[in-house]
Design a protein around this nucleic acid. Structure first.
Lengths: 218, 218
DNA sequence: GTCAATATTTTTGTATACAATAAAGTGATT
DNA sequence: AATCACTTTATTGTATACAAAAATATTGAC
């Protein structure tokens, strides 16, 4: 457990931002954070650099670092990008996926279904993540998979809100099955479409995300 | 011109890595760099953090920061990802592009052609970039456009090698015209395919990139 | 009381000092 | 000669000190 303070603090700050402990535009005060974490400014500044690099915060030279929560527009753009990237992963995976991975997708779906039945939200999220991560990996392009993973993580706190919608879980499960079927058949454009529609936010999903965002902001 | 040392140094180091002044695995010695740039270790360390964040270098805790040049496999993956992301930009742009932007694409193509005729390599690169950046922007998704731009920049040094291939420029111009035609017709899948094929590396292009890489490594 | 000019405080950015860990060197033992 | 323990050196990570810029407070004129 001998990890650099800077890394530990960066993770902690990320978590704080993601869980809504900071509002958009809040200044991340070095001295205050240093006292809070019981370290000097140096590791705090390194951690802040990491937040800036990952787009969670913004740096104004000689002014400070400010948290930057995505607004509705940017959030929509990020979800659209995620949908398109997952579609690409699916397109490539349809031609490259292994039988083992197909089995893993189905297993993840089974466990998702079980989690849904037993109201085990955590398990559902875990298996849902495994499902998507497997598709990223099966794109056969680890750079692309890394990018997908990165954005997936960035959107995590917002996806959480989204899935509370009544009946959404059952619909999501059906979409997962269509995705697996498309991948199994090797139909790349079908897989791309299925994933794009699954991840994308339109119609009811969009309306719901907006209301959730409004309430979360207060 | 009152810019932070750390930012200036990060840009300089990026440039040094991109222009091949460092080999894969080279350690970026803080003390040496500090003397070289005439500053203390502090801004050097901030700059190194930025390189690590952007994937140009890797950090091993309590060991140092090492430059990480992509090998042939990762490079192919990055080019494939670039091709797919450009395809996505094209797919979205086909439905969203403005008449002004279409005119700008054609102007960029005209200037590309002129640059080709007068052997003005710099002008060619400049207009080629404008062509692609315009398509990113016309995706109507500024987050996606930002990601595309980021990867485009990362691949810049390698694209330079690639385009030296005799006759490649003329072929590239033809592909540009097909892309514009697809965008003008609003045919999203045609635009996606045209861009994917244009950016992707297959057949002769692949073989050529590999030999260029081999010679560049020495 | 308001506004501008100036002084004070705060905060960032950089330099330096120090502590902890890893790497390199040294010598004894087999 | 090779290997292991131990010492020395070098390098990273963190703390602190200082300089410069920005933010804030204070003073004085009107």
């Amino acid at each position: 457990m001998d990890v650099r303070h800077a890394d530990r603090i960066a993770d902690a700050l990320e978590e704080l931002v993601f869980t809504g402990q900071f509002n958009d535009g809040d200044r991340l005060d070095e001295i205050r954070l240093a006292k809070q974490f019981g370290v000097s400014r140096t590791p705090i500044r390194e951690a802040l650099q990491r937040l800036v690099a990952s787009g969670i915060a913004e740096q104004l030279p000689r002014r400070g670092v400010f948290v930057r929560q995505p607004g509705p527009v940017e959030l929509m753009e990020m979800f659209e990008t995620m949908a398109e990237i997952e579609a690409v992963c699916g397109r490539l995976a349809a031609r490259r996926i292994s039988d083992e991975a197909l089995a893993e997708l189905e297993q993840a779906n089974d466990l998702c279904r079980a989690a849904m039945a037993s109201q085990d939200t955590d398990a559902y999220y875990r298996e849902n993540e495994r499902f998507h991560h497997t598709i990223y990996a099966q794109s056969g392009n680890s750079y692309l998979a890394g990018q997908a993973l990165r954005l997936h993580r960035r959107l995590k706190p917002f996806r959480r809100l989204q899935l509370r919608l009544r009946g959404r879980l059952a619909q999501s499960m059906g979409e997962h099955e269509e995705i697996v079927a498309a991948l199994r058949s090797g139909d790349d454009s079908r897989a791309a479409t299925a994933l794009r529609d699954h991840v994308g936010i339109q119609g009811e999903k969009f309306r719901h995300l907006m209301t959730e965002l409004r309430t979360a902001a207060q």
